[in-house]
Structures are given as C-alpha cells and as structure tokens.
C-alpha cells in the first residue's frame, strides 16, 4: 500500500482514516511506519481484536479506533452498566475457547441472548419474535446496551462505543 500512502502523503492531510478488516489495515499500518508518516492514523472497529496488534506489530502503536467496550472490559469503571456482562463474557470465552474474547464473538452472543429472551417470553412465530425483540429495554450485552422499538432496530446509542488507542501492544481508552 506504499503507493497509495505516498499519494496521500503528497497532499498533506491532517489525518488518515483507514476503514477495513485484516489484513489490509495491518499492511497499511506497517507501510505508514515505513514512509515515516507522522499524522494520526484512525481505523475502524474492523480491526478491534488482538489479531491486528499481532499482525501490525510495532506499527500498531498509537493507532486509534472506535470500538465496543469488550476490548477494554477490565479497565472500565465499575459504574459502567455493561461491566458485569462484559467481564463474564471475557471470562467464559477464555475458559471455553482458550482465546481472548472480542466483539466479533460478542455480537453473536448478543443476538442469541436477545432471541433467548424473546423465546422465554413466549414468542413462537416470526412476527411474535419480532414484537418481543422490539420490547427489549436496557439489555446490557457485549456490543452495547440495547433498547429496541418498532422504529429503532439498531438499538444502540453513542455510549456503546469508546475510542481506544494501541499502547504497548494493548488497548487503552482515549478520554
């Protein structure tokens, strides 16, 4: 990707946003370091797993990205409503798969748990399942705290995300 980054360097931007999933962003991180780019490099939640830090190595240092809170579950304040769910998920994931849990597995976990809730409330047809899901309020999942309605099928607000930065091969929260 040095050719693209050289072109970008030529027009002197204030920052670079790289939106993608591995391995592309890891290559870009390495190439940016090779070219000596000093401007901030922002990436997407598509690389918010330890795999990215492992692939990009030292070049990952200082890169910032928005991410779900699961990456930084252990350093969240105890007052965070998601804290309990996140800590349990990270621990169970580690015990079961012997790997670090990230939000990729977390999304599937949320989906299954939301469905479980709908079933337990007696939904048994597609329309009934939908109606039950739309009644979900304040579900503290891994991807965020979900509150659905018939208008809102995304269910998340801005507070579901934190801005993280790679520091010493780990994630820290940017305040």
């Amino acid at each position: 990707m040095t050719a693209q980054l050289t072109k970008i360097r030529g027009i002197k931007p204030d920052a670079i946003i790289c939106w993608g999933t591995n391995p592309g962003p890891a290559v870009i991180a390495k190439n940016a370091k090779q070219l000596g780019l000093k401007i901030p490099l922002y990436m997407s939640h598509g690389v918010s797993s330890k795999k990215f830090i492992e692939l990009a190595g030292d070049a990952a240092e200082g890169i910032r990205l928005p991410s779900g809170k699961v990456l930084v579950a252990d350093v969240l304040p105890a007052s965070d409503p998601q804290k309990k769910a996140l800590m349990a998920f990270v621990k169970d994931y580690q015990n079961h798969y012997k790997a670090e849990g990230d939000h990729f597995g977390g999304h599937a976990w949320d989906a299954v748990m939301l469905l479980k809730g709908a079933f337990e409330n007696g939904a048994d047809t597609p329309a009934a399942i939908r109606d039950q899901l739309e009644k979900t309020k304040q579900f503290h999942g891994i991807g965020g705290t979900f509150t659905y309605s018939s208008q809102d099928h995304a269910g998340l607000g801005k507070e579901a995300f934190v801005l993280v930065e790679v520091k010493d091969k780990d994630w820290v929260i940017v305040k």
Binding site: N22, P23, K30, E54, A56
Partner: peptide, 11 residues
C-alpha cells in the same frame, strides 16, 4: 486467519 512472519532484519 492471516498470519505475519517477522522481518529478517528489523523494521
């Protein structure tokens, strides 16, 4: 998964 091999002599 994608994997990285360390460079032969530094970065």
């Amino acid at each position: 998964d994608t994997h990285a091999i360390p460079p032969f002599s530094g970065e």
